[in-house]
Every structure is written in C-alpha cells, then in structure tokens.
Amino acid sequence: MSEAIADLFKSLTHGVYLIGVADGETRNAFTAAWVMQISFDPLLLALSINPDHASFPLLESGGAFSVNVLKKDQPDLAEHYGKSGDPGPLAEPDWTTGKFGPPLRNDAMAWFECKAKYIAPAGDHMLVTGEVVGGKLLDADAMPMTYADTGNLDGAGALFPDSFTG
C-alpha cells in the first residue's frame, strides 16, 4: 500500500524549506523537502523541483535561488507555499532580497543564497545544483521543521507506488 511506502520515506530525515526564486521584479517561493548539501569545495546544495511548477521558469531565467530553513512552529508557511499556483506577493517585512535577487525569508531559522550551476532531469522532477554564495543563521535556538512534522500536508502519500519494482 502506498501509505506504508510514504511512511517509510518519511523516516529519511530531511527538513522543510521555502525556496525563493526571482527574475527581475518577478518573485515567487515554494515549499521543498528535497534539499541537501552535496559538496564542500565548492560549497554546493541541490534541490528538486517539479518542472511544471510556476517557480521553475523563474529559477532557470533568474539563475539564483534561496533556501529558507523553516522552524518547527511554521507549518502554516509550509502549507501556504506548498499549494500549487501563485502564493501571492512576497511582501516586506516578511521577505527581503538577496544579493543575487532571490527572496530571503526574514523569520526563517536560517537562509542560504545560491547561484544556480546545473539543472538536470531526475524522474518527474528537475535536480538543481547551486553554489552557496551567502547565508545567515537567524534563530540559533529554533528547531528546524522536518518532513515528518508535516504529515501528509503535501499529498505525496498518494504519489508513492503500491509496491516496489525490480
């Protein structure tokens, strides 16, 4: 049953993030759980995004993105930016603009600013690698939100197969 496989994948510990993208004055953000560090030298992060998401063209054309680490007590933000469609304006004082253009969340636990380096297909998503060019720890006492904290907020339970193949 797909629910059992979804529960299995929730045991992989990973956080919940708001990914900020921009191209010129057009800005957007989306919730992501598939973010990881992949290199120390250069310092690289990778994320996964559905190519049909409205943020993907902004990421491609803007050439930069931010990774905003959500706090455990911010499930409302994960839900708001996890919905399909336009989340609405990314207004001050909640957001500011990074050096290379992507929006940075002022009440996040931390943020990273990245310049996109590589984009490649990865199943039904695109894998994006970015070089970290800035970052800031905003709340050292906060606990990061984990994917397991979100339950089935993203509806991903229905996307897992009913059994493994091969």
Score class of each variant (00 low, 15 high):
83 K>L: 11
18 L>N: 12
75 P>A: 04
31 T>W: 07
47 L>C: 01
2 S>M: 10
143 M>V: 15
95 W>F: 13
127 L>R: 07
151 G>K: 03
59 L>Q: 03
135 G>Y: 04
109 M>E: 06
68 N>M: 11
66 S>R: 02
23 D>L: 00
64 A>V: 03
23 D>G: 01
12 L>M: 03
122 A>G: 15
112 F>H: 11
1 M>I: 12
98 G>N: 04
68 N>C: 10
137 L>F: 11
81 Y>S: 02
122 A>H: 14
11 S>T: 09
137 L>K: 14
111 W>T: 02
23 D>T: 00
54 A>G: 13
74 Q>S: 08
6 A>P: 05
152 N>R: 05
73 D>A: 12
161 P>Q: 04
22 A>N: 01
96 T>M: 10
122 A>Y: 11
125 H>C: 05
3 E>N: 12
32 A>I: 08
129 T>K: 10
92 E>A: 15
90 L>D: 02
154 D>P: 00
37 Q>G: 12
123 G>E: 12
147 Y>I: 02
26 T>A: 08
87 P>R: 11
84 S>T: 15
110 A>L: 02
110 A>Y: 02
90 L>Y: 00
149 D>G: 01
32 A>R: 06
120 A>M: 15
5 I>V: 14
41 D>W: 00
27 R>Q: 01
79 E>V: 09
105 R>G: 12
67 V>S: 05
54 A>C: 11
33 A>P: 06
80 H>M: 10
81 Y>H: 08
37 Q>N: 13
160 F>A: 07
107 D>K: 09
23 D>N: 03
76 D>L: 14
96 T>N: 07
86 D>S: 07
50 N>F: 05
13 T>E: 09
166 G>N: 12
86 D>F: 08
15 G>Q: 06
8 L>R: 08
33 A>C: 09
68 N>W: 09
151 G>Y: 05
55 S>H: 14
100 F>H: 15
163 S>F: 10
92 E>C: 04
61 S>A: 09
135 G>D: 05
65 F>V: 00
162 D>K: 13
112 F>Q: 10
164 F>L: 14
29 A>G: 08
73 D>L: 09
126 M>V: 02
144 P>H: 10
154 D>Q: 11
25 E>M: 08
148 A>F: 11
76 D>R: 14
8 L>V: 09
62 G>A: 04
106 N>F: 07
27 R>C: 03
26 T>L: 07
38 I>N: 14
40 F>M: 15
57 P>H: 00
96 T>I: 05
138 L>S: 00
104 L>W: 10
145 M>E: 11
39 S>C: 14
56 F>W: 11
116 A>H: 03
137 L>C: 10
36 M>Q: 12
32 A>S: 10
109 M>Q: 13
105 R>I: 14
105 R>H: 15
121 P>E: 15
42 P>M: 02
54 A>D: 14
